[in-house]
Every structure is written in structure tokens, then in C-alpha cells.
């Protein structure tokens, strides 16, 4: 019984990981991609850790697994918010199918440079900035 539950949770976790990676590949926009990666961190890693806690079924291991799940649940939104905010401030191009941009008039044009930085996206040499064209 425990083996069946563990196998099911492992399958669910790895399946959601692959779905999130597919979203990373297929989504047209940074912010949409970021929503996929957050789901990977929380749902998939949570299911795998729950499988581990159920499989061993001891107090110490379950406590450590629960602590790790809580840590992931707490830190995934923080990291995602951090990336999303700074990506919006350095003007990463949005998808052209974007309907609503609520923050359009909130930030002044030099909001990303309170200390005199340059408001551009850091890119590696030879890498193209901007989105690939999608229909």
C-alpha cells in the first residue's frame, strides 16, 4: 500500500516537472515562463518530498521533508517576485498578445535606476534581446 502511494506521488511529481519544463520552452514571454517554473518548484518538488516522507515513514525524516516543503513554499514566491519585478523594471519585452498592463503608469521611466544604473537588459555577447516572433 505504501509502495503504491509512493509510486503514484513520484509519477505525479515527475509529470508536473515535465509539464513545467514544457511551459518553460513553449511560453512566449518571461512572465508566463516564470509562472511555470514556480509551479514546478512547489507542486512537483512537494509531491516528491511527500513521497519520500511516506516511503520511509519515520518521524525525523518526515519532519525534515515537511521543513523542506515549507521552505520551498515560502521561498518560491519570493524568488519569483524578485525576478518578475526587476524584469519589468528593466523593460523585458512583454508578449504582444498582452491585453492589460496594470503597472504601465505606476513606475516612472527611471524607476530602475535610483542609483544611476543603466535601464537596459544585461545580455551576453551575440545574444539577441527581445522575443522571437510568434503568431
Amino acid at each position: 500500500m505504501i509502495e503504491v502511494i509512493t509510486a503514484l506521488l513520484l509519477i505525479v511529481g515527475s509529470f508536473f516537472m515535465v509539464v513545467a519544463a514544457l511551459g518553460i520552452i513553449r511560453m512566449p514571454d518571461l512572465l508566463l515562463r516564470m509562472s511555470c517554473s514556480t509551479k514546478a518548484g512547489t507542486i512537483s518538488l512537494g509531491a516528491l518530498l511527500l513521497a519520500l516522507a511516506i516511503y520511509f515513514w519515520e518521524f525525523g525524516i518526515a519532519a525534515r521533508a515537511a521543513a523542506t516543503i515549507c521552505f520551498v513554499l515560502l521561498t518560491a514566491p519570493i524568488a519569483s517576485h524578485r525576478i518578475g519585478r526587476i524584469a519589468y523594471l528593466v523593460r523585458v519585452p512583454l508578449w504582444r498578445g498582452t491585453i492589460k498592463d496594470e503597472l504601465q503608469d505606476v513606475y516612472p521611466p527611471d524607476a530602475c535606476s535610483p542609483f544611476g544604473q543603466v535601464c537596459v537588459i544585461p545580455s551576453m555577447d551575440g545574444a539577441e534581446t527581445g522575443l522571437e516572433e510568434r503568431e
Binding site: 516564470m34 524568488a79 534581446t129
Partner: peptide
């Protein structure tokens, strides 16, 4: 990934 934030998201996953 075209920009650096895309690469950070890829690193995350």
C-alpha cells in the same frame, strides 16, 4: 533564452 532573466528562470527549474 534571449535575456538574462530568462536564463535565471531556466536555472530555477
Amino acid at each position: 533564452g534571449p535575456t538574462l532573466p530568462d536564463r535565471i528562470v531556466a536555472f530555477d527549474i
